[in-house]
Amino acid sequence: MTLATHDVRWGAGGKLIVDGVTLEVEPNRVLGLIGPNGSGKSSLLRLLCRLRKVASGVVTLDGEDIAGVGRRDLARRLAFVEQQATTEIALTVCDVVRLGRTPHRAAFAAWSAEDEHAVDAALERVGLSERHDQLWHTLSGGERQRVHIARALAQAPRELILDEPTNHLDIQHQLSILRLVRRLGVTCIVALHDLNLASLFCDRIGVLAAGRLVAAGAPEEVLTPALIRDVFGVEVAIRAGANGRRQIDYLVDHEPGEPL
């Protein structure tokens, strides 16, 4: 068992943004969340790691309501990678990754060998060991996202939540970030924009539209021309891709609803 939501609702400014989502995450698998802009992906992710409190419904972790779990206990279990989080402070790569040890350290505890090992191991896993002392500002977008993932790994989480980690990256770095996520071997919930990347890297996909979960399941079950037309308003053709996954072709000359 791992994360699950039961009829979760949340709104802001009098508008319902997450509208009755019931979802179960499978352990050690990658769950992709897709949906148009404003469909509630980011908000749902924030509800999952309790950065926002649900208005109704419950989010459970191993069957236990996370509203009753201490914030620090939760942080040792769940890590969150925001999209494009940056800082004005002159931090080095290892300063940033060290932040991941925050929930594991008492207020005045000295930096321990275990902390140091966790930081080194995390940097190793994202392939940035050599950048240990480099300044954060000097990193490229893809490297920054890797450092954030390393920071999250230093938390030693069993669940990792990522909000559009590939946003604003070129295709090479999009692929390398998602390949990394896929190989981490922890339960991942990742919001994605690109349908083909979702098809390529996710074990399961949840589709959000206007705050509701309209479909969930394996990519080949969920990603159908009919669903994509309904949710995204575009016509597609779907074929078997070279990777053995479904490949989605956008049919730009067809207006939605028009016969092929």
Binding site: R46, A75, F80, A85, L99, T102
Partner: peptide
């Protein structure tokens, strides 16, 4: 001084701090 570590965790904003277990 008691909050020194919490202040470090604000480097990437309030949500990042909260996800690191800071109240």
């Amino acid at each position: 001084m008691v909050h020194a570590k919490a202040l470090d965790a604000f480097a990437f904003g309030a949500d990042a701090a909260a996800s690191l277990g800071i109240p």
